[in-house]
Design a protein around this nucleic acid. Structure first.
Lengths: 227, 227
DNA sequence: GTACACACGTGAGCC
DNA sequence: TGGCTCACGTGTGTA
């Protein structure tokens, strides 16, 4: 078959109306066609409109050929390189990529909905957890409260979301928890460890469940995870 | 411009050599071309080889046109529908899809490489084991490691012992963990929340179990609690 | 020899 | 009107 990929750069492709004709074969072919048509019409086909037409059509073909080459270049595992195959492979490849994206997005979505939070109430339960390897949750909230001092330790391990710290503080404010001290440490590239110690208002009593419920409810909204 | 998308199904496209000619215009055009060429050659171009050639070429064009339509069908937001644009948009779209996949795979990879070892060990007061539900443990150690970044988050909640922070840092040093950042927050009067992020030395590999084992072993000695 | 893929020039349709 | 795209038949090279 013709190697249309390399034909692009052949001199004959553009030398039809140039001064020299580096590719005699192609020149002759083109010239023959021209003469034939000219004879039929009884006038020279070298007139400007026809020449422009030929030139623009040639340009259009060249452009398409370039695009074909570019398209075939980004399709991996291309075996047959004829244009029809390139098109068909491109179609398959696009479908394949779409499918892969769908899978990945599904995975990502699953992961988000799989995120569980560690719900620790005001009193921690003293027993050893022997959990071995597992995936880091997107959001992990833990609250430990001291009833006597009415202080709460809140530890949050989460993916870096925009403005979570401010939202967290606002949230605590609304829960009548005043910040005693706080700390934010980055873990890796995408994770934040937030530690907050807050004082519960004297007039507002809250159980650990209530606190955790409110806290997690609003925080998980940031990740659009249904409760 | 010609609507090459709808040209596909036009009768003239395939009726050239059929018995009827449902599209007179196209038929005439084709016939004229044929006669012209035939005259030049001085013989009928209806001979079998030429006809087959024409037919196969026509088939090839039709196939390509179908592929073009199929390709343009799976490219969203296609504005210009000329072939060159379809090709160029297809190229862009493929690149775009590839980019999206790269992002998603990176995310997924991050998540997977974030396989962590979460170890939690709680040691409660020996004298409070019966109603331990309501009492803060004497020592709570938690380590969360990011395998990819070789970073470890260590969270310790403990009664204020003398010099635990220094001992902790020394211990980590001996485990070839270099401190990236740390924070100590007091909770109530008697409790400390220590947060440490440390980097694991490249040459020292440690499993989560090993880390927790060493960490807790030494820390619990501070409280003289038998392992 | 023959089957196929290509580039070409060309006429025509459409803004 | 001119500039654009398209399908067509054709000659040619290659497997």
């Amino acid at each position: 078959m013709d190697d249309w990929l390399s034909d692009l750069d052949m001199g004959g492709d553009i030398s039809f109306f140039s001064e020299e004709h580096p590719n005699p074969t192609l020149y002759c072919v083109a010239n023959e066609t021209h003469v034939q048509t000219g004879a039929k019409r009884g006038r020279s086909s070298w007139e400007t409109p026809t020449r422009d037409h030929i030139m623009s059509e040639r340009k259009r073909r060249q452009l398409m050929a370039e695009r074909f080459i570019a398209l075939s270049a980004i399709i991996p595992g291309l075996k047959k390189i004829d244009k029809a195959s390139v098109l068909s492979e491109a179609i398959n490849y696009v479908k394949q990529l779409k499918g892969r994206i769908a899978v990945l997005e599904q995975e990502s979505s699953n992961k988000k909905s799989m995120m569980i939070f560690t719900k620790k109430c005001l009193q921690s339960h003293p027993h050893c957890e022997k959990n071995s390897n597992h995936v880091l949750p997107q959001l992990q909230v833990e609250a430990i409260g001291l009833e006597l001092e009415r202080e709460v330790l809140i530890r949050i391990l989460c993916e870096k979301p925009k403005g979570i710290f401010l939202k967290l503080l606002t949230l605590l404010e609304n829960m009548h928890l005043s910040i005693v001290s706080s700390n934010v440490l980055p873990l890796g590239k995408n994770t934040l460890n937030i530690t907050i110690i807050a004082q519960m208002g004297e007039e507002y009593n809250m159980t650990g469940d209530e606190l955790m419920s409110k806290l997690t409810q609003d925080l998980f909204k940031l990740y659009e995870v249904p409760q």
